[in-house]
């Protein structure tokens, strides 16, 4: 797929004929320098934006022609999001934030029990009734991970999940994501410019000037196209 912003002489090719597939249960890192197009790629995979050309398949479903409502439903059921700034809703409590995707889906059966289990797994079961703006950045990111997992999505997409955290907390969040991925056999696609902290992962895709390469060192790169 490709993504082009602007028109005519102001055209910017954010993604240039990128094509790859990710298998279930893989922990994939998307790395690249600032402005390389990695977040754009994540937005395409997360159906938050549409490619100019090409298609995104998730669980063998072509998402290109889905209506806005279908895309919302798809995002809700098949995708989990973890953002750089956690993006919790500060008007809600920790538990309510985790429950929100389930409530949007309209399936509240055992939702609260699942949410508490997830919060326990991320070590925040003692904070469930706190307002989301009353917890630390690291705790908020853990809540975001729990929220991303509550609907048992096909893919969890994380955009710079440690970008706003100190190195100690970053390390903890990374380990937590890897643990959850392993424990739940969950596909994780993580965009980061902080390759080193992640240690061993299943795959690394490097984005450079809108093109995607397999691997993390330019000399080792195999073009993904």
């Amino acid at each position: 797929m490709s993504k082009i912003y602007g028109t005519d002489e102001n055209k910017v090719k954010a993604l240039d004929n990128v094509s790859f597939s990710i298998n279930k249960g893989e922990f994939v890192l998307i790395v690249g320098s600032s402005g390389s197009g990695k977040s754009t790629l994540l937005n395409m995979i997360g159906l938050l934006d549409r490619p100019t050309n090409g298609k995104v398949f998730i669980d063998e479903t072509d998402t290109t022609n889905l209506t806005d409502d279908k895309i919302s439903s798809f995002r809700n059921k098949k995708l989990g999001f973890i953002f750089q700034f956690s993006n919790l809703l500060t008007d809600l409590t920790v538990l309510e934030n985790v429950l929100l995707p389930r409530e949007i889906a309209g399936t509240s059966d055992s939702a609260e029990k699942n949410a508490i289990e997830l919060l326990k797994a991320v070590g925040l079961d003692d904070q469930i009734n706190k307002r989301a703006n009353k917890i630390s950045g690291g705790q908020a990111q853990r809540v975001a991970i729990a929220r991303g997992l509550i609907n048992n999505p096909s893919i969890v997409l994380a955009d710079e999940p440690t970008g706003n955290l100190d190195s100690v907390t970053s390390e903890k969040i990374i380990q937590l994501m890897k643990l959850m991925a392993k424990k739940l056999n969950q596909t994780f696609i993580v965009v980061t410019h902080d390759r080193q902290h992640f240690g061993d992962v299943d795959r690394i895709i490097t984005i450079k000037d809108g093109k995607a390469f397999e691997g993390n060192l330019p000399s080792e790169m195999g073009v993904l196209a």
Partner: peptide, 16 residues
Amino acid sequence: TREIGVMRSIGATRKD
């Protein structure tokens, strides 16, 4: 605005 964006990204429809 940001909260609306978050809600949309986690599956809330325009109608919601």
